[in-house]
Design a protein around this nucleic acid. Structure first.
Length: 704
DNA sequence: ACCCCTCGAGTTCT
DNA sequence: CTCGAGGGGT
């Protein structure tokens, strides 16, 4: 679409400018794509520059219209922008972790058991350093790189092909011969420590952005909109695996690595082939010793069964291969000062003590806060304000306070006394509840319930959260702002806001808001006026009712009307209604009590009614009763060959069956694949019907 | 009266 | 991710 340079920005209306900016964003990004990905620009540099200047001129005149995807924001360190999603044909899985020598011995023993190998039969493994970078999937067709994607969540990644093309370590064309027509090569993108330090030093001197750690650097550099920026980043790559291949190309992991090397990929010089657990542990010690001199960060060693036919037989448990494990180095620890302990109020009124720490770098991230979980935990660890404490990042993610260093305790430091009064404005007294068996619970709670503004706020946060209403454009910040304006006192207010022109006008007048953002907000809210019953129930945030229980309730009652009628009856003490609810799977006393307590409050009943008025709540399918397995409890055991565990589970549940993980006399059916062990034995002892996978499929297929 | 498994709830940082 | 509690089986 041509730019009309004849009209001065000042002569345009806001709506016209918004439209033109939208066109410009599209057009410029298309030229970017042609330029970087296809190396075939269709406009001259001068024309391209003219487009960009026009964009800037319009934005200068209408600053409120600057789009999140504006081309002007894209040079240099662009904010996270949209990349096309890539569905991984072969998912990029996670890997089990081992932390001790015993775990590693158990890993070998498990492989031996599963394959039923003779104890004398040596098992060959590869041992490769686990690099702390970003996994990538590179697709080659006929030896040419056609697509490069990040791992993403393992199923769907982001297409950053043009950025991968700028890495010297990644061949655009495979060398040598013998590669399959189609092969997806997988490996790790990372940065060497010296390159990283040099980059940050230069960036700091130039006033540019610096990165907290090498991992973030790799990730940030790869996800640049402008591939020219990536090209200037010192990224490296090691290949270590593959996804889809059109033909097999090796018989062992080790041969595969050599093949990848021959085709032009760097592979780790530290990779080794060893035998047995003893060999794995020796490789681990060697790498641990070599670690400081490698020049890049590694956080452990990955072990893989060398023979690919064995890998195939071993298969997967849920999301991780049975034939590989990652032996992690001990987590990095750090010392810092415990400057204070704050009390946070959760959605349910739970009071969680949070350690405020003197900022300290642990594992490449600056940590300022860490949860202390509860009062018992503080007592057990005997940490006191002013103490020097030991911190580590559990699983390299969540910071943990390990304990205090007694020698470093300042004089006069007293044990922390958990407050008896809630920090919320109501200053309610703090209580510990009793469990059904009469013991006191560990958690302390605020008793303010819906009157407590802290709890109310957390409830609203929960209501809009991703797994509940997931309202786009209504994040924590907006929520806070609207609450501060007094616009939100209950969830229904969110939906009223989208219809309230007076408030929306007020919003349009506010700084940082324009017509576009208001329109997006309204669209985001309206998009969720229709919602499935299970999400609706979950969003209410009833105690003991999480995602799974909400789904059970939704399936049990089908429609909102039925559910609300049942809830009211239960609250009124109706025995029949209680029995009916109790009969639902995984729903017992605690859940029923929680539902009863909630719906016994007039306040809550009004809140729900107001909400229902604003919404269309979709019926959830009741479990089927017309299939051969409806209402039956099924256990899958052994290796399944025609479907994954998750697929099998989803299929069975779709047919109204219940899937359990262990065999008991309540089990109706056991589906056993090769390698099934104790569960099969138990089934035989209990006289439970056992099917092969094929028999199961035959039973289930005609009813679809 | 136990024991195992599943579920809920809370949490860090970029 | 990790802990604690509820559900349900033995």
């Amino acid at each position: 679409m041509p730019v009309d340079p004849t009209r001065e920005p000042a002569d345009l209306t806001e709506a016209e400018a918004a439209d033109e900016l939208e066109r410009l964003a599209l057009e410029i990004s298309e030229h970017d794509r042609l330029y970087y990905a296809d190396e075939a620009p269709t406009v001259s540099d001068a024309e391209y520059d003219a487009l960009k200047r026009r964009n800037t001129a319009l934005e200068t005149r209408f600053p409120q219209l600057v789009r999140p995807d504006s081309p002007s924001l894209r040079v240099g360190s662009a904010p996270s922008a949209k990349f096309a999603p890539v569905l991984h044909g072969v998912p990029m899985l996670s890997i089990d972790n081992a932390f001790s020598d015993e775990d590693v011995q158990e890993f070998e023993a498990r492989v031996r058991r599963f394959l039923r190998l003779d104890p004398a039969e040596p098992i060959a493994f590869t041992a490769e350093p686990k690099i702390d970078g970003l996994s990538a999937n590179l697709r080659y067709e006929h030896g040419r790189l056609v697509q490069g994607a990040t791992r993403g969540d393992g199923r769907t990644g982001e297409d950053v092909t043009e950025n991968f093309r700028t890495l010297a370590d990644i061949p655009r064309k495979l060398s040598g011969s013998g590669w399959p027509d189609v092969i997806e090569v997988r490996g790790e993108v990372f940065v060497r420590n010296d390159d990283f330090a040099a980059f940050n030093a230069a960036a700091e001197a130039a006033g540019g952005r610096t990165y907290a750690n090498p991992r973030n650097f790799a990730s940030g550099s790869l996800r640049q909109i402008d591939a020219a920026v990536t090209a200037q980043r010192p990224l490296r790559f090691f290949a270590y695996a593959w996804g889809f291949v059109s033909a097999p190309f090796a018989e062992t992991q080790w041969e595969a690595l050599q093949a990848l090397k021959a085709w032009g990929f760097p592979i780790s010089a530290e990779a080794r082939r060893v035998h047995g657990a003893a060999g794995l542990l020796a490789a681990y010690r060697d790498l641990q010793a070599a670690r400081p001199n490698l020049g890049y960060d590694i956080d452990g060693v990955v072990y893989k069964v060398d023979r690919l036919d064995w890998q195939q037989r071993l298969g997967f448990v849920s999301r991780a291969p049975r034939w590989a494990t990652a032996h992690k180095f001990p987590a990095e620890q750090a010392r810092t000062i415990l400057e204070g302990i704050d009390i946070q109020v959760g959605r349910t009124g739970s009071l969680t003590p949070v350690a405020r720490l003197k900022p300290v770098t642990v594992g490449g991230v600056v940590v300022k806060n860490a949860t202390l979980h509860n009062a018992d935990e503080i007592e057990r660890k005997d940490v006191r304000i002013g103490d020097t404490v030991l911190i580590q990042r559990a699983g390299d993610v969540i910071p943990q306070v390990l304990g205090a260093i007694p020698e470093a305790r300042p004089e006069g430091a007293e044990p922390f006394e958990f407050p008896h009064v809630c920090p919320c404005p109501l200053k309610t007294s703090v209580v510990r509840e009793t469990t059904h068996s009469g013991a006191e619970t560990v958690v302390r709670r605020c008793t303010g319930e819906f009157a407590c503004p802290f709890q109310k706020h957390e409830h609203l946060k929960h209501f809009v959260s991703r797994r509940a209403f997931d309202i786009e454009g209504l994040g924590e910040k907006q929520l806070q702002a609207f609450s501060d304006l007094g616009w939100l006192t209950e969830p229904a207010d969110i939906f009223r806001l989208a219809r309230d022109e007076a408030k929306l006008d007020e919003l349009r007048a506010r700084e940082g808001y324009g017509e576009t953002s208001v329109r997006n907000l309204v669209a985001g809210i309206d998009a969720r006026r229709t919602i499935p019953l299970d999400r609706f129930i979950y969003a209410l945030g009833l105690r003991h009712v999480g995602e799974a229980t909400a789904l059970t309730l939704a399936r049990g009652y089908g429609t909102v009307e039925h559910f609300l009628a049942a809830a009211d009856a239960v609250a009124a003490g109706d025995e029949a209604a209680i029995a009916e609810m109790d009969a639902l799977d995984q729903i017992g006393d605690a859940v029923i009590q929680a539902i009863a307590a909630y719906f016994a409050e007039d306040h809550n009943r009004r809140l729900v009614a107001n909400l229902v008025e604003q919404l269309t709540i979709q019926e959830v399918e009741r479990p089927r009763t017309d299939t051969p397995v409806a209402g039956k409890t099924v256990v899958f055991t052994g290796a399944l060959e025609r479907m994954t565990r998750d697929e099998a589970k989803a299929q069975a549940e779709g047919l109204g069956a219940k899937v359990a993980s262990s065999v008991s006399k309540k089990t109706d059916l056991v589906v056993a694949g090769p390698g099934a062990g104790s569960k099969l034995k138990t089934a035989a002892e209990l006289g439970i019907q056992v099917l092969t996978e094929d028999e199961w499929l035959a039973l289930v297929r005609p009813t679809g």
